[in-house]
């Protein structure tokens, strides 16, 4: 069965000065998708992520979230529409506890108004309780129950990544974008991460797009892979197709000088 696409990006481009960092990048992501975005260093993967999440405004192209045009909107609007992400260089609220970090994600859906907060209305207490309960549940799901009251900045690298994912899940997203989630993790942490991502996609029904350098991980995890080289999509398909594609091999291994000269 196929659902309506959650993210539909059409021909996204962005220029920084004279440099075209990403050139007409397109993506269709559905809730059942577990897609990967790979490419050599500097190919524009993170920039593509930033375009999709509203951190950068595209010079050209359009983004539709759930069929709604969200081009040029700020990140919190896209988060509201159902997009959540993590960052390559982890960005936690370091001075807050794990629970508080994840509860921040609940602000979007259940946050009370200033008035009901100051008046300590029953609606405020209800929403606080709901935020806390949902956050606790998510923290348990990602396996951080033991660290729930610890300062997020004091956790190990692997646990910090999980907090980031938990915080993203607390916004109740329809699609989750993970920017190099396995970077800096040891093999057992990576294995746990893979299982978590599969659960997010399979059990929670959230569409996932992963940027990753670890080729073995991407090939085993993702069902569909996009390859980006010098800002352009050079290939999209199943892992086996991608691995056999000459354009991909060229992107990663380069071409011989002579052939390049002929081309």
């Amino acid at each position: 069965m196929t659902h309506e696409p959650i993210i539909e990006a059409k021909g996204l481009s962005i220029r920084f000065g004279g440099l075209v960092a990403v050139d007409s990048y397109s993506l269709v992501l559905r809730s059942e998708d577990l897609a990967g975005l790979i490419g050599p260093n500097g190919a524009g993967k993170t920039t593509a992520f930033n375009l999709l999440t509203g951190v950068h405004k595209p010079s050209e192209g359009a983004i539709l979230i759930g069929g709604q045009d969200m081009t040029g909107q700020k990140p919190h609007k896209l988060a509201q529409a159902g997009l959540a992400r993590t960052f390559q260089n982890i960005r936690l609220f370091a001075d807050l506890t794990v629970l508080e970090n994840v509860m921040c994600g609940g602000h979007l859906r259940h946050g009370s108004s200033l008035f009901s907060t100051l008046a300590y209305l029953p609606a405020f207490r209800r929403s606080e309780r709901q935020i806390a309960q949902e956050a606790t549940k998510i923290i348990r799901e990602v396996g951080l129950a033991d660290a729930i009251d610890r300062r997020a900045g004091d956790l190990s690298y692997g646990d910090q990544r999980r907090v980031e994912i938990a915080r993203a899940l607390a916004t109740q997203p329809k699609a989750l974008l993970l920017d190099e989630p396995a970077a800096g993790l040891n093999p057992s942490e990576t294995q746990a991460l893979v299982e978590l991502i599969r659960r997010i996609n399979g059990e929670m029904g959230i569409g996932v797009l992963v940027v990753e350098h670890d080729m073995r991980l991407v090939m085993s995890l993702c069902r569909r892979i996009q390859v980006l080289n010098r800002g352009k999509l050079v290939c999209e398909g199943a892992p086996a197709e991608v691995q056999a594609d000459p354009a991909v091999i060229e992107a990663y291994l380069g071409t011989r000088r002579q052939r390049a000269a002929h081309a």
Binding site: K74, D95, L96
Partner: peptide, 23 residues
């Protein structure tokens, strides 16, 4: 409160707060 956490999130990491749905 949730509002206060949103404020502290903004202090801790502006971009992450924004991407977590905080205006």
């Amino acid at each position: 409160s949730s509002l206060g956490r949103a404020m502290m999130a903004t202090r801790e990491n502006d971009l992450a707060a924004e991407c977590t749905g905080i205006d």
